[in-house]
Structures are given as C-alpha cells and as structure tokens.
Design a binder for these strands. Structure first.
Lengths: 234, 234
DNA sequence: CTATAACTATGTTTTAAAACATACAAAGTT
DNA sequence: AACTTTGTATGTTTTAAAACATAGTTATAG
C-alpha cells in the first residue's frame, strides 16, 4: 500500500510485470534494448489531448493525473494512475489522437516502448495481448461504473466515493489512515464532478461528521463505513 | 445506413468481419462448427448485470440496448449497439460478472462463441486479438467522451448530442431525415442522463425551434447544424 | 370491448448545485 | 519586507433540473 517503493531504487522496465513477465527470454532481451526511460517531475505534461501517441507508455513509479477538458475550461479527471501500469494506450491502439491529457502528480519514471516495438512483441506474444485486453476491460469497467456515479449521485455521495476510490488506488500511508495522495481541492472537485467550492464545503461537513480530518491537502479517513454509507445513499 | 439488411436474409457468423475475416480457412472452419446462433425478439434479455459471461456474443443483426441500473432504479443506457459487433465482451475478458444488462430493442440474431473456443482462436490468431483491442479502444474512447458530456453539458446539449450519437449509430431511414431508431421518451432520457419529463419537454422545444419533428417515437431531424450547435454550446 | 397499464404531455413547486462575492492564509517572487 | 499569486473557506444569490401533480393518449390484456 505504501508509496515508498520508488524511493528505494529506481524501477526498470522489468518492474512492469504485465509487460515483461509474459515475454520469452528472447523477447525480454529485445525489449530491454528497445525502450527508453523517461523521468518526469511534478506538473510536467506527459502527453496532451490532440497529440498523436508514439508508443506504449508504462508507469514505473510515480503518480499521474489523466484528465479531459470539458465545457468552459472545466476539467474532468478521468483517472488517477500509478505504477506499474499503462497510460495513453487507448489512443495508440485506436489509431487516434489522445482524447485526454496526462500530467505528473508525483515524480515519475516512465518507460516508452515505440509503436513498432510493442506491435512486434504483440504479434509474437499472445499473453501480452491478453494482458493489454485485460487492462482495457478493467478500465472500461471502471469508466462505466464512474459514469453512473458521477451523473446520478449527489455531491456528498460523489465526494465520498471519490475518496474511497483514491484509497483503493493509492492506499494509506504507514499510519493506516492518511490517504496516499495529496490532491488540491480543485483536483478533488475535478475528480468528483463538482466545483471547488462544493468540494471544500462538503469536505468540511465530512470533518464535522467525524468521517475524516483535513490538514491542508492531507486527508485522514477516520470512518470508512460512514463514507461507504454516504457513497451508497448520497 | 439503412436497417433493411437484416430483413433480406438472415446473417451468419461470416457477417462479423472483425471476427471472421481475420481467421485462416482452418480457423474459420473450426468457428463455423463451434458456435451457436441465437434469435431474440423485442424486449428479451440477452444478459443481466451480475451474471457470468459464458462466451463472446456477436450481434449479426438487430438493435440492442445496454444499460446499468443506477441509484433509485434510474437506469443509465451506456450503449446502443447494432451489428456487426461484440457485446458483453468486457466482462468476459475482465473475468468478471456483467456490470450492465443487454436487452433486445429490435429482433436480433446473435452468435455465441463459447469462452474456450474464442480463447483458442485468440491464442492462435493475433489479428483477432488486435480487432478485439480495437473494439475496446473505441468503446473506451466513447465512454470517456460521453462521461464529460453527460456530467457537464446542460439538458439541451445532452439531448442534442444523444440524438446526433443515435444518428451516427443507426443512421437515417430512406428519407434521409427519420432517425433509424425508435426510442421511448424514457429510453431517450436514460441515454441522456435526464428524467423522462425533461426529455419530453426538451424535445418539444426542439420541435418549436424547428430542429426536428416528432410523431410518437418517430423523430425526423430537420436541422443537423442547429443540433450540433446546441450540443456544443448547451 | 372494456379495463388497465404504459407512455406522452405540460404546468407547478422544490431543491440541489452552480455562480458569484469576499476574505484570509500560505507560498513564491522581486 | 512588500507584493503577487494560488489555494482554501464561507456566505449569498441564482438557476437548472428534479420532483410532484394531473391529464390525455395509446397500447395491451383479460
């Protein structure tokens, strides 16, 4: 659950099991000499809406925010990602431009596997295809689930659910209560389909109801059951 | 564009190009003897939320509504499908239960390819994998796009967009104006994230604005430009 | 062929959430 | 240190959409 892993040693592409572990020794060798390692710092843009993907991107470590620009400059965060996993692969495989932007939230090590290289590997290795299919299936399921929540739940329910989703993705810090991601109120709002004002207000009421405590961007969840109840009924 | 195709002759699994055309003659033979053809009539349930998928389903002909149950029995139509294409494959490849239900909207011929059969074909045929990946990529893109629309656009914009999406999927009848799908006001509402009352009301205003005419479930689009404008700005 | 249910239509009321308006605190710059 | 920017907090107003109410209309079943 912790987020320390990346601080111990820099990850390599071997740390992306859904990519590396299914390859034959031969293919592994090929991949090792045919990828690049990119390092990003906070707020750097990995790719932007409208750009053409050049290959498969794999998060080795770090945290990434993926968002779409909505009406009147109101962003919608469609996904918060962390390693190990793929980003930007939808556009790659749909042969389209990116429909969302990816920006670094916490320093990242990212591996870039050029289109031809990943295609060649996929041609020779079915398990890799199946893993990519699995990623798609999971992500599409999550997208469906969230669409219903974001369109039908009320503000309290949306925010409570978002906090629980963030817990599922990033877990807690060592104390077992502090959310492992430190979003601004605005990002939290953009992840929960509401305005920043309402995110702030609603967080405040959650604090009053003793479901959590807040200290700047540090959110400590005190009562998961209560949040789950709010998420379900709100 | 037309919807007549199915009435001329009953489709076979050969009419699912993304499945059949990429197979070797050998594999085609195997598939031909290892699938079942299912016929459904209006309102029949193909699968339901919570059920476990048993194989890949391909729409040969007909129209299918795929929806998720939301809060307080309010359904959300996540997709309107027609042949040739896959349905229910997300759950199959995610190894999960269905997260949405599929119900027949217009009489369907559907091909069922058992899990083991499709898996075997995918193991031996990469182009098939790539086609399935392509389906996922397209559908995920659509889901993302719709999430932003359904959460951020106002009622008029959502309804206008939904009508244009339905046009893209089902096209027009021979007259070049009549939408090729006849949804109830409630279905239209469930596809546009609004209540039936608001779908009715908003349709009425579109008629007054001469963007379309309505006769029961028959919708004739008169001014696509106007709808596009409403979709963009609303 | 009536009865019952499902669908469509429209007016009225209520409510949730956005928009707007300040204000204060923290962080970063010059 | 003074200044600017950015993020957080709260109160007030406005508005979009839901909820509610009622009624006509069309299907469908007994």
């Amino acid at each position: 659950m912790g987020t320390k892993k990346g601080t111990l040693r820099e990850p390599t592409i071997k740390d992306i099991p859904q990519l590396f572990n299914v390859l034959t020794p031969e293919e592994q060798k090929y991949l090792l000499t045919n990828h690049t390692t990119l390092r990003y710092r906070k707020n750097q843009i990995i790719y932007q809406e409208g750009e053409r993907p050049t290959g498969l991107l794999c998060i080795g470590s770090g945290k990434v925010k993926i968002y779409k620009e909505g009406m009147m400059g109101r962003d919608q965060i469609v996904r918060m990602a962390s390693g190990p996993g793929f980003i930007g692969y939808r556009a790659l495989f749909a042969h389209e431009t990116h429909i969302a932007s990816a920006v670094v939230f916490e320093p990242c090590v990212i591996f870039h596997v050029a289109r031809d290289v990943i295609m060649k590997l996929m041609k020779s290795n079915n398990d890799l295809c199946m893993n990519i299919i699995q990623s798609f299936a999971t992500e599409l399921g999550f997208a469906r689930f969230r669409t219903v929540s974001l369109t039908q739940k009320h503000i309290r329910g949306r925010l409570a659910e978002s906090l629980l989703v963030l817990r599922d993705i990033y877990g807690y810090e060592a104390d077992g209560h502090t959310l492992g991601i430190y979003l601004s109120r605005e990002d939290l709002a953009n992840f929960s389909n509401m305005t920043a004002s309402n995110a702030i207000r609603t967080l405040t009421t959650f604090v009053k109801e003793k479901a959590l405590t807040v200290d700047g961007r540090i959110i400590r969840i005190l009562d998961e059951q209560k949040l789950e109840r709010i998420s379900r009924l709100g």
